[in-house]
Nucleic acid binder design. Sequence first.
RNA 1: GCCCGCGUAGCUCAGUGGAUAGAGCGUCUGCCUCCGGAGCAGAAGGUCGAAGGUCCGAUUCCUUCCGCGGGCACCA
Length: 561
Amino acid sequence: MTPQELAQQIRIAVNGAISAGILNLEIADVPDEIVVERPKNLDHGDWATNIAMQIGKKAGLNPRAAAEILQPILEQLPGVEAIEIAGPGFINIRLSAASQGELARDIIAKGASFGRGTQLVGKKINVEFISANPTGPLHLGHTRWAAVGDAIARVLEAEGAQTAREFYINDLGVQMDKFGASVKAAAIGETIPEDGYHGAYIPDLAKEIVSASPEIINLPEPERSDAFRDAAYALQLADQKRVLENFNTHFDVWYSERSLHTSGAVDRAFEKLKSEGHMFVEDGATWLRTSDFDDDKDRVLIKADGALTYFASDTAYYVDKRNRGFDLCIYLLGADHHGYVNRLRALASCAGDNPDDHLQILVGQMVKMLKNGEEVRLSKRAGNIITLEDLVDEVGVDAARYSLIRYPVDSPLVLDLDLLVSSTNDNPVYYVQYAHARIASVVRNAADLGLIPANTADWDPVTFNPSLLTDEREGALLGLLADYPRVVASAAELREPHRIARYVEEVASSYHTFYAACRVLPQGDEEVTELNISRLWLCAATRQVIANGLDLLGVSAPERM
RNA sequence: GCCCGCGUAGCUCAGUGGAUAGAGCGUCUGCCUCCGGAGCAGAAGGUCGAAGGUCCGAUUCCUUCCGCGGGCACCA
């Protein structure tokens, strides 16, 4: 029995008590969501609900009295072994081993789909992240968004959403020109401009461009500068794509800022804004009256000299996303861009949307890196950046992704490179993966001994007897597994994939505890019992949940390590 | 000055109003002739930055203050 099923049963019981006049309440007074949670202390029971405390006041009862009214009704529920009232009015529920253990069968039947939900079915969601300038390698900060953004999309998909992962390429403007000028300078042996890019990759790019097309050197200006800029851009973008694919982060859409201008998207957006009545001209410039909607000041779209601002691109881009049919546009921004939040929301309003419905901006804090106990200062200009690729080379894709997803993005993250690199065993990802590999090994051994087929799809349900799983550690593990769908749902709702990581660590821990205490396979020439087989079902169910959880993080679940 | 985020064990961090505030690392003590010891069991370690407020109940929500980080362009 899952907590959702239990909550449903409780609702029926409460409504029944109201209809029967035992509780002096209206059906409408029952909360929309009945909370059924794992108590922190499992001595309290398998599940707990605070429903009595929620309805007590409205029913004119103290919470304990309300709980006492519900107790005999809940005790009659199928699969419920005991109901206890505790503390201020908690109702603690203990399930029978058989009822609780049924879950293992359910998990194995559902396989990879166990834990998936439906709260976002029919929703089309655009998840935009990283969106780095194509003027250099992706660095540590980008890496956090790469891991987290992809995991958010995975979690949304697990709840039924149709998503697009999107990378907005800032391929227009002075940064691109500076980048091109830097590469050109390196190619023709001039000093790179002070305000240019000074990373070691610049001369490499120059060399690659010149050797691919030597005649570029002899082009007249300004064609030569443009040619260097565009060639360097193409190489750098290709490099970013390659690195991200290696990082297990696949973008569905690479959206060029330039294309907004050539495709007419800007014009369409301006039409829209004009029709909504928020554009105006002043001092020779064209403005958007974002201050109508909580922005500090109005923003320029077209400068007095006729050039479009970056904000004009932002505006066109948002309107274009909505035109492409996305119900919700999620932006992942670094803390250094949090000043954009109000103006993005305001522009959504100017475009006639309610930003609370169609726009969500997640602001993530910075990543710091410690090396030898000292903070590594990151500067792309100085060229001492830690790149996404460096990190992956050092610790591998799984450990890198996991370490970055494990923490909520709204808190600053300090990664100790020495710890991550030198003693990778301390990384929790190995703890979780180890549990998975360990279970895989047990199941392999069981199959080798002829206890059970190698593939769980071939397991005969008759061989599973959940009523034998009476050890407290078995109960603890089963209860935790039952909680998985709820964890996925809340990770999706809150856009917080780190919850999956934390949960999966708990599962691994609970499994190791079970494993140390409960012998799964028969020893020596002991006879094979129903208990051996039933525990194998529990093992396989645990393996499935760990694999499903790791998959939502884009981390592999190895059969062997 | 204004705006956003953060402040929890020595360190790095969980904990979207509930019961005795948790985990990893580090320190200390036990546990492999048997399914993977990359593991398990246990000990020590806390004024949840401070003060008010709301609530049956606050680490969590609100206000003020202190500390840290980031941001406030007709730049991109």
